[in-house]
Every structure is written in structure tokens, then in C-alpha cells.
């Protein structure tokens, strides 16, 4: 693979890779560093990339593995929080994310890593179940189960949120 092909096939995936890295690492700078690191690694292996059947899926899988390695390495240093449990937003958060779309993003952000990654790969990136299975190293069925759980949780939280808003309105 020459530099023009690399630019066309790999660097064009930067935004997708960045979104995936950001979803896992929950940090813009760390995600950017991860994308740059992966791009460099792929460039070093560019002669072998011609053998890869599905380059975008391969790059996404490599990105996820790299991000998970980063989390493992930083776990002891507590630089990146491993998991955050979703709580009802406090008044500050309410004013911060007034619109519901921002709150939904916040809900996705608080899903476990695997569910968060899978729901984003499917609903944001529009990947096939088989591609997600390859990237996450899971079976298609396991991907579907995790996707369903993620969507159900979001639905449940959206409905609870609306219920709370309605109750508050009727109380006042």
C-alpha cells in the first residue's frame, strides 16, 4: 500500500476511529492520541494491509484494542475512569445539558464500555452486526444481546426522565 492509498483508505477513517476512541476513553485528547498512535502503527504495517479483507473493520478493531490497553495501563494511575454508573442528573447537570439529546448522549456515556461501544458502532456508525462481532471479538448473538440491553437501558432512562418531568410539572 503506497502513501496515496494509505491516505485514502486509512486516514479517511480518522473521524470514525476518533469517535470510537472517544466513546471508550471518554476523553478528547486521549482519543486523539490513540488515533494518531494507531495511524502510525498502521503506516508501519502498510505493506501487510493489502491482505486485510475489511480494512475499516480491521482498523476499528485495532482501535478498540488499543483503547482497552490504554485503559488497562492507566487503571492503576486512575487517569481514565473505568466505568461510571448513571445517576439522575443534579441541578447543575440539568442546566448544563438542557436539551434532551445531550442528556441521551450522557446516558450512552454512562453505559458499560462494551454496550456503549456496540450501540455507537451500530446506531452512530451504522455497522453490520457481523462487523461489530469482528471488532469486539464476540459472536453475532452476543453483539445483538448487548445492543438490545444498551437500547433498552436508554429507553428506560428516557421514559423515567419524562416521567420525572411530568411529575414535577403536576406538582407545581
Amino acid at each position: 500500500m503506497d502513501s496515496a492509498q494509505f491516505k485514502h483508505q486509512v486516514l479517511s477513517l480518522s473521524d470514525k476511529l476518533f469517535r470510537l476512541a472517544k466513546s471508550i476513553l471518554r476523553n478528547n485528547d486521549a482519543a486523539q492520541d490513540a488515533v494518531q498512535e494507531l495511524s502510525l502503527k498502521l503506516w508501519e504495517k502498510r505493506n501487510q494491509l493489502d491482505e486485510v479483507e475489511n480494512l475499516p473493520a480491521f482498523a476499528m478493531r485495532s482501535m478498540r484494542n488499543l483503547c482497552l490497553d490504554t485503559i488497562r495501563q492507566n487503571r492503576d494511575k486512575d487517569e481514565i475512569p473505568s466505568e461510571i454508573i448513571y445517576d439522575e442528573p443534579n441541578p447543575y447537570q440539568r442546566t448544563e445539558s438542557n436539551d434532551m439529546a445531550a442528556r441521551v448522549k450522557n446516558m450512552i456515556e454512562h453505559l458499560p464500555e462494551l454496550q456503549r461501544t456496540i450501540i455507537r458502532m451500530r446506531d452512530v456508525e451504522g455497522l453490520e452486526i457481523s462487523e461489530i462481532a469482528y471488532i469486539t471479538n464476540l459472536t453475532g448473538n452476543a453483539v445483538t444481546v448487548n445492543l438490545s440491553r444498551a437500547r433498552q437501558k436508554i429507553r428506560e432512562q428516557i421514559m423515567n426522565e419524562h416521567k420525572r418531568v411530568e411529575e414535577r410539572i403536576w406538582r407545581t
Binding site: D29, V104, K105, M159
Partner: peptide, 22 residues
């Protein structure tokens, strides 16, 4: 209607691009 925000969130997320190289 309560799910509009969910699909809006996905749409907004898909527009996120990587900032210029640091």
C-alpha cells in the same frame, strides 16, 4: 416523541470529527 431525542443524539454523534492534529 420521547424517542426523537435519542435519534437526534445518534445523528449529532455521527457528525463529530477529529480535531486538527495537535
Amino acid at each position: 416523541e420521547i424517542f426523537i431525542s435519542m435519534f437526534d443524539a445518534f445523528e449529532e454523534e455521527s457528525q463529530v470529527v477529529m480535531p486538527a492534529p495537535k
